[in-house]
Amino acid sequence: MIAQQLLNGLIVGGVYALFALGFTLVFGIQKILNLAHGAIFTVGAFVSWYVVSLGLPLLLGILASIVVCGLLSMLVEFVCFSRLRKTGDEEFGAIISSIGAGLVIMTVVQRLSNTRVLRFPFETFPVRIYEFAGLRITLLQLFMVGCAALLVLALYILIYRTSFGRRIRAVTDNERASTLVAINPNATYRQVYFISGALAGVAGVLVGLAFSSIHFAMGEPYLLFAFVIVILGGLGSILGATIAALLFGMMQTLTIAFLPSGLTNTIIFLALFLILMVRPNGLFGKEAAGALRGRR
């Protein structure tokens, strides 16, 4: 029973990781909390649903979500943050501005969907259940784990092993110095926002598939969960966010399974609060916070 819950938690945690990574990536590079991230995630689920309901394959839907959410995230950066960064008051301003963007996106989605709760058609994903060593896992769950693992791995390789990743880290370290070596910081920022949005989009599709409840406000709880995850892992840390997301997924499924259901959120946010008090830099200490910095 506990092993089954832990497995379920790991699977959900993988999806949380996708969502939280995009969030923490933006914070790591610009010290900006993008509160429109939840709304972008919602758009991801809706775009895929729309593509699938047109009769096209799911894979095409996921691709469409990646592109649309990536572009939307770039648009949010352009409209909400690019001007603020020049004034230097982006810490307060960006929070306000991205709350605004989130509200606008959510309302548009609400209008377009007429406030309905949508679900993917039943046969979108074949229902198959595997059993081994007493644990049950569905094909969909395997797909979710596969997607999450693949994308997280790809992100690692991208950031720590390619010249594009070196550019990102250079801009994070010192924006002015990076221009001296012919890096265009603004272009780099735009690319990071695209990646961030794309990850949120995929997370949206996976959550839509798994819980079959797609509605305009679905991103809000995930945004709040992402707070917990990125703080637990250290704001801006990629490795931290990945591990924290898995831990968080397991913690959440365990509290849901074994404690009175109303208390889940209380415990989650109490935990967040305590972590902030005891280790504001996350579980992995000071070095990990903003780990994009200072790693060659």
Binding site: F92, I95, L224, L235, N265, T266, L270, L272, F273, L276
Partner: peptide, 17 residues
């Protein structure tokens, strides 16, 4: 800064739940 904002949002959620 940001950490204060997140901590207080967590507090709001605790009171609501």
């Amino acid at each position: 800064g940001v950490y204060q904002a997140i901590a207080t949002v967590a507090f709001v959620q605790i009171v609501v739940s």
